[in-house]
Amino acid sequence: MDTAVQIVVSGLTLGAMYAVGTIGLSLVWGALRMLNMAHGVLIAIGGYFSYQAIDGWGLPMPVALLVAMLAGAAMGALIYFCAARFMFRNEAFENNIFIVTFGLAIALENGILKVFGGYPLAQPFSLDGGFRIGGVYVPWQNVLIVVVSVAVMVVMAQFLAKTRMGRAIRATAQNRDAALLMGVPIGAVFAQVLAIAGSLAALSGVLLSSITTLSPQVGFDPMLKAFIICVIAGLGNVIGALYAAFAMGLFEAAIQFFLGVRFALPLMLLIVIAALIWRPYGVFGKKQVTRL
């Protein structure tokens, strides 16, 4: 019984963080057909800005979270204005933007290394203490992570469903030409999507680093996991990604418990490979008809 509670608690915590990180990646793919390889470094940027805001500038935690999200949004917008803007009309965009964001990611990661050094730091965005469910100790930090993540997801869902900007993002993702014909300035939409994705990645970086440690590479594994989740859900399928994120969190917690940490990521990657071979368009994804 305690085992089950333990797995559910850490699984939900992981799932919540993955969900927040994955929504952004999925939105960006949906709207731009772009795999953002800088996602991992955006996660790290969030973590470091929160660290700097709290330990360096002495700001309170909620403000620090905001600072981190703003920094992520600014980086995301920068990726649009410095790179994607010149490229998205090109036929080779999908491959080229992958390479460009890969290059930016390595540059930024080493920039962080230069500024903060490579030693792991402790994320000050955290709560002490906890409570017990039966024999299982649940830290308040895990509760905080789940609460913040769920709140952000609810806000995002409302934003996409109800606002003018949210509708324009969905419309652009479904049919770029038709959105243009409605008068949607798709360049601005792309910049917004990248900024939103950047702020969500930064937020997930603050949460992630609060239960591990902060290092320049902190975002790489979570980025791969976010990709796995996206692929299983079908790239661009935001709702599917949410389910897949929680499923993945629970699955990872279970593997860690029964098989050990060593096999968690390799097994997840093997699953994604199997999933891709079995259903190339994602388990929940629909096959898209490519026009000739």
Binding site: F86, M87, N96, I99, V100, G111, K114
Partner: peptide, 14 residues
């Protein structure tokens, strides 16, 4: 080194 390489790669593709 890696900052330079990363930026060169990105700049060339763009």
């Amino acid at each position: 080194r890696n900052i330079g390489l990363g930026l060169i790669l990105a700049a060339v593709v763009v």
